[in-house]
Design a protein around this nucleic acid. Structure first.
Length: 495
RNA sequence: GGCGACGUGGCCGAGCGGUUAGGCGGGGGACUGCAAAUCCCCUUUACGGCGGUUCGAAUCCGCCCGUCGCCUCCA
């Protein structure tokens, strides 16, 4: 089955054909490290993380590059405020970014280049542009001459004449044309600076991605991604620079994720309506955020709210219960089945997998894929319900349940990066644990003793004591559920 | 103002020419000591408005209303 994705460049859903299969080269614009990442960044990161996993599942050898912008005005300003140097700020937020990524289960890219480590490459790109006549030098600054690049506007569907008409004209501008953008900025006193053919200075924002793509991936890549807000001017400017130099398409497919909003307004630093990733994953299990992102198509806007987190938590627990309750079913009396043939669950798993991957192949339709997940969850639960109400399970049902729940779990882990805590292959120490867990100094054996004591009380019909134990444990974030297969306990996954 | 996108049942959110989305919530029932979990049933003119195309439209076209994004840094 072929993968189809929406290409911003053509404005259409297209069949995905890599340049050099099975290799797929992807670049996405990473964050500017001047503060903690918020849910808006998180969405983009999660979307491309899952998309990458899906490509790998399809058999592609993905080389994924995501950069850090570690020198820019905001970082410099922050450093001034804190009376320190920009590198201290950048290093700090890169470290914090990695903590965030570890917590929300976003895998590192194959290459994670920093601007400050690519100054020679950036200078080289600028030099070529100057040589080819696309860029000009004014008092130590270098600007790209937009008018010289005839295709300018093809990604963002803008007409160059209209842009000129609408452009702000700033009085002390060194640019020849208001549309031109800076490739190199002469440094002011006290600011970070590198030597260049045009004197001491630092790169403008738009060149770094071009230089990094050229260095780590090549002149033409398969997919270039990022948030929708980067289409103009950032990605438009990347295309102008790269294609001015090579004369070849810079990226075949441009993928842009929709923005995160709060009450309908874009989540952003400047509006102050942002929620940091850290805030989210210290309150809720990180899977809940991933699921929240996946429940909306990647190109649609996503309105964030804590109410929605709470809703998603419920949905998450339903998925998790269906899978982990296999262990409870195993504790029931297992009887021999009198029925022959394979259990319907096997066929349902097969259908699920076909539908699931078909949805992802159709412009990465994760919400539709999730609808198939929940259909399977329903089938699993029917089997569970039957077993609970009968107080026993047949060997045929149990093995089908085991097969189906494990299949589903594997798919969730592999593609969506969910439920990695269940039947873990390796124990991962995470730098930040949830607040929820921070105060929970409890021992599983002690909980087990309390549960046994409570069950004795229940047997003796001393329900006051039984309920007291359950209520008090709940206050500690431990939920008890009595089932025909015994008492199950679990931690609450949300605030 | 220019360009682009969107308006779906109580809420969230897929679908984009005829056939089930899915999640969350609400009501009833089964199970349970009670909860919780789970199942079953109900919430059976859902597709912003008005026109048009079509045998047939939430899905295509036009106009209108409303919301948002980009046009400055931004994932």
């Amino acid at each position: 089955m072929s993968l189809r994705i929406y290409n911003t460049l053509s404005g259409k859903v297209e069949e995905f054909v890599p340049i050099n299969p099975p290799k797929v080269l992807i670049y996405t614009c990473g964050v500017t490290v001047y503060d903690d990442s918020h849910v808006g960044h998180g969405r983009s990161l999660i979307v491309f993380d899952v998309f990458r996993r899906f490509l790998e599942h399809l058999g592609y050898q993905v080389k994924f590059v995501r950069n850090f912008t570690d020198v820019d005005d905001k970082i410099i300003n922050r450093a001034k405020q804190e009376c320190t140097d920009f590198m201290t700020i950048a290093d700090r937020y890169i470290a914090r970014y990695y903590v965030d990524m570890e917590n929300i289960r976003v895998r590192p890219a194959d290459v994670e280049p920093r601007v400050t480590e690519h100054i020679p490459e950036i200078i080289e790109v600028i030099q070529k542009l100057v040589e080819k006549g696309y860029a000009y030098v004014v008092e130590g600054d270098v600007y790209f001459s937009v008018k010289k690049f005839k295709d300018y506007g093809k990604l963002s569907k803008r007409d160059i004449e209209e842009l000129i008409a609408g452009a702000r004209v700033e009085p002390s501008e060194k640019k020849r044309d208001p549309l031109d953008f800076a490739l190199w900025k002469a440094s002011k006193a006290g600011e970070p600076a590198w030597d260049s053919p045009w004197g001491k200075g630092r790169p403008g924002w738009h060149t770094e991605c071009v230089a990094m793509v050229f260095k780590h991936l090549g002149e033409t890549i398969d997919i270039h991604g990022g948030g929708l807000d980067l289409v103009f001017p950032h990605h438009e400017n990347e295309i102008a620079q790269a294609e001015a130099i090579t004369g070849k398409p810079f990226a075949r497919y441009w993928m842009h994720n929709g923005l995160v909003t709060v009450g309908g307004q874009k989540m952003s630093k400047s509006l102050g309506n942002y929620v940091t990733l850290r805030e989210v994953y210290t309150k809720y299990h990180p899977d809940v955020l991933r699921l929240l992102v996946l429940f909306t198509h990647y190109r649609s806007p996503l309105d964030f709210s804590w109410e929605k987190m709470e809703e998603t938590l419920k949905a998450y627990e339903r998925l998790k219960n269906a899978i982990e309750d296999l262990e409870l079913l195993k504790k029931l009396q297992v009887v021999e089945s009198k029925e022959g043939g394979t259990h319907p669950l096997y066929e349902q798993v097969k259908e699920f997998e076909e539908n699931f991957y078909a949805s992802l192949s159709d412009d990465f339709n994760t919400p539709e894929a999730l609808s198939h997940v929940y259909k399977l969850v329903g089938e699993l639960n029917k089997v569970k319900n039957k077993a609970y109400s009968e107080g026993k399970i047949t060997d045929r049902e149990l093995s089908a349940y085991e097969f189906a729940s494990k299949s589903l779990l594997n798919t969730m882990k592999k593609i969506f990066g969910l439920l990695e805590d269940l039947y873990p292959e390796c124990k991962v120490e995470r730098v930040v644990e949830r607040e929820l867990e921070a105060g929970q100094v409890f021992d599983e054996k002690l909980i087990q003793i309390l549960i046994e004591a409570r069950n004795i009380a229940r047997k003796e019909k001393v329900f006051k004591v039984a309920d007291y134990i359950r209520d008090k444990l709940k206050e500690l974030g431990i939920v008890l559920e009595d089932t025909p297969a015994g008492t199950k306990w679990k931690k609450r996954e949300g605030a």
